[in-house]
Measured scan of single mutants.
Amino acid sequence: DSWHDTVDGIELELHGADEELLKLAKELLKRGVSEEEVRRIIEELLK
């Protein structure tokens, strides 16, 4: 799946992010949310 590559990229960027955020990112990508949107959501949550 192409979203796996996206998640791997996000995981590299979010090496400090907790497991729950990564699960959320994967779930959003699986549901068709764009990579940009996922990054934006996670950045908001990390604030």
Rank of each mutant, 00 (worst) to 15 (best):
residue 36 E to V: 08
residue 16 G to C: 02
residue 1 D to L: 11
residue 31 R to I: 12
residue 36 E to F: 06
residue 15 H to L: 15
residue 6 T to E: 13
residue 35 E to I: 15
residue 4 H to V: 11
residue 42 I to N: 00
residue 37 E to Q: 06
residue 29 L to K: 04
residue 30 K to E: 15
residue 43 E to S: 09
residue 14 L to D: 04
residue 8 D to E: 13
residue 38 V to R: 01
residue 3 W to N: 09
residue 37 E to T: 06
residue 41 I to V: 03
residue 13 E to P: 06
residue 5 D to L: 08
residue 47 K to A: 12
residue 22 L to M: 14
residue 1 D to F: 03
residue 16 G to D: 06
residue 16 G to V: 09
residue 40 R to P: 00
residue 38 V to Q: 00
residue 21 L to A: 03
residue 42 I to Q: 00
residue 25 A to S: 03
residue 2 S to L: 13
residue 26 K to S: 07
residue 14 L to P: 04
residue 45 L to I: 10
residue 9 G to S: 14
residue 8 D to Q: 13
residue 2 S to A: 11
residue 18 D to G: 13
residue 15 H to A: 13
residue 21 L to M: 11
residue 20 E to N: 12
residue 19 E to I: 08
residue 26 K to M: 06
residue 46 L to E: 02
residue 27 E to W: 06
residue 29 L to C: 07
residue 46 L to W: 06
residue 37 E to S: 03
residue 40 R to G: 05
residue 16 G to W: 13
residue 37 E to V: 06
residue 39 R to H: 05
residue 8 D to R: 02
residue 24 L to S: 01
residue 17 A to M: 15
residue 45 L to V: 04
residue 21 L to T: 05
residue 22 L to D: 04
residue 46 L to C: 02
residue 9 G to F: 15
residue 24 L to A: 02
residue 39 R to A: 05
residue 7 V to T: 12
residue 11 E to R: 09
residue 17 A to Y: 14
residue 25 A to E: 03
residue 32 G to K: 00
residue 12 L to G: 07
residue 28 L to I: 01
residue 7 V to K: 07
residue 20 E to C: 03
residue 7 V to D: 10
residue 31 R to N: 15
residue 41 I to Y: 05
residue 12 L to T: 05
residue 45 L to Q: 04
residue 39 R to V: 09
residue 27 E to Y: 04
residue 42 I to W: 01
residue 34 S to V: 03
residue 20 E to I: 08
residue 24 L to P: 00
residue 5 D to G: 12
residue 32 G to S: 00
residue 25 A to I: 15
residue 37 E to A: 06
residue 5 D to Y: 03
residue 33 V to G: 02
residue 43 E to L: 14
residue 7 V to E: 10
residue 2 S to W: 15
residue 24 L to D: 00
residue 21 L to V: 09
residue 11 E to F: 13
residue 28 L to V: 00
residue 17 A to V: 15
residue 9 G to H: 12
